[in-house]
C-alpha cells in the first residue's frame, strides 16, 4: 500500500438488518494521519459503520478495506492495524488495569518481551499509571474511559476508532479526551463518531454527516465556517 492511498476505504457499503438498511450505499475514504468525525443523530448508522470497519459486522454489500486489507477477506490482517473503543466502554471488571492492558496487548499481537514496555508507555500517556494495580471495578467513569482508550493504543495501531468517546464524561474529562485525540493527529488515523457537533468540530479535520444510514456530505472543518448551519440544513 502506498503512502498516498487511503487507510480506510469504503466502497458502496450497505448493511441490512433483515430488510432494514442501517447503512446505505456508503462510499468514504479516510487518509493517513487524518482525524475524521462521523456526525449524525442517534440511529444514523455511525456505530454500524464503525463496527463494519473493525470487522465486528460484515457489510451486506460493498467492500471495505483497512490498511489495504479487505475486512471480510483478510479480517485478521485488517484488525491488526486497528485500536477500537466501543461506545459502551467494555472492560473486564475483575481484572486489574495492568492485567487488562497486558491481556489486550498480547491478544493484539504484542510480543511477550515487549508487553511491559507497551503497558508502561500507554499508561503514562493516558495518565493511568497510578491505577495500574487497581481492579477495574473500582475505577471512576473517567478512569474507565482512559483505560478503554489505553487498550486501543497499547499495540501502537495505525488506526484508532472511537465510538462516542466523550459520552458520560464530565467537562474536565471531555477536555482531556479531546486533547488526547488532537495529540494523535498526524501520527495515527483516527475515526470518531459523535452526535455532538461541537465536539467533532473541535477535534476532526473532516466531518462526514450521516442520516438514516446515508452519507449526506463530507466537508473539511477548516473550509466550512458554519458547520452548524450545514448540519441543520442537511438533517
Amino acid at each position: 500500500m502506498s503512502d498516498r492511498s487511503p487507510v480506510i476505504a469504503a466502497r458502496r457499503v450497505t448493511k441490512l438488518y433483515g430488510a432494514v438498511p442501517a447503512v446505505r450505499d456508503l462510499t468514504l475514504e479516510v487518509e493517513r494521519g487524518e482525524i475524521l468525525g462521523l456526525l449524525g443523530p442517534n440511529g444514523s448508522g455511525k456505530t454500524t459503520f464503525l463496527r463494519m470497519v473493525t470487522g465486528y459486522l460484515s457489510p451486506s454489500t460493498g467492500t471495505l478495506t483497512v490498511a489495504g486489507h479487505d475486512t471480510v477477506g483478510e479480517p485478521m490482517a485488517a484488525r491488526r492495524h486497528i485500536g477500537y473503543v466501543p461506545e459502551s466502554v467494555p472492560l473486564y471488571p475483575h481484572m486489574r488495569v495492568r492485567e487488562f492492558l497486558a491481556f489486550m496487548a498480547r491478544l493484539r499481537g504484542v510480543a511477550r518481551s515487549e508487553v511491559g514496555r507497551a503497558v508502561a508507555s500507554v499508561s503514562e500517556r493516558l495518565a493511568v499509571a497510578d491505577v495500574l494495580a487497581t481492579p477495574i471495578r473500582a475505577l471512576s467513569r473517567g478512569y474507565r474511559q482512559r483505560v478503554a482508550i489505553a487498550q486501543a493504543l497499547v499495540h501502537d495501531p495505525q488506526i484508532v476508532i472511537l465510538d462516542e468517546p466523550t459520552n458520560g464524561l464530565d467537562p474536565r474529562q471531555i477536555i482531556e479526551t479531546r486533547r488526547l485525540l488532537q495529540s494523535l493527529a498526524g501520527e495515527r488515523t483516527v475515526l470518531i463518531s459523535s452526535h455532538i457537533l461541537s465536539e467533532v468540530e473541535k477535534v476532526a479535520q473532516r466531518v462526514a454527516i450521516l442520516l438514516r444510514g446515508e452519507l449526506l456530505a463530507v466537508r473539511s472543518v477548516a473550509d466550512t465556517p458554519d458547520l452548524e448551519a450545514l448540519f441543520l440544513s442537511l438533517t
Partner: peptide
C-alpha cells in the same frame, strides 16, 4: 465486541 474485533 473487544474479543471479536481483536486479531484472533
Amino acid at each position: 465486541e473487544l474479543l471479536l474485533t481483536a486479531p484472533v
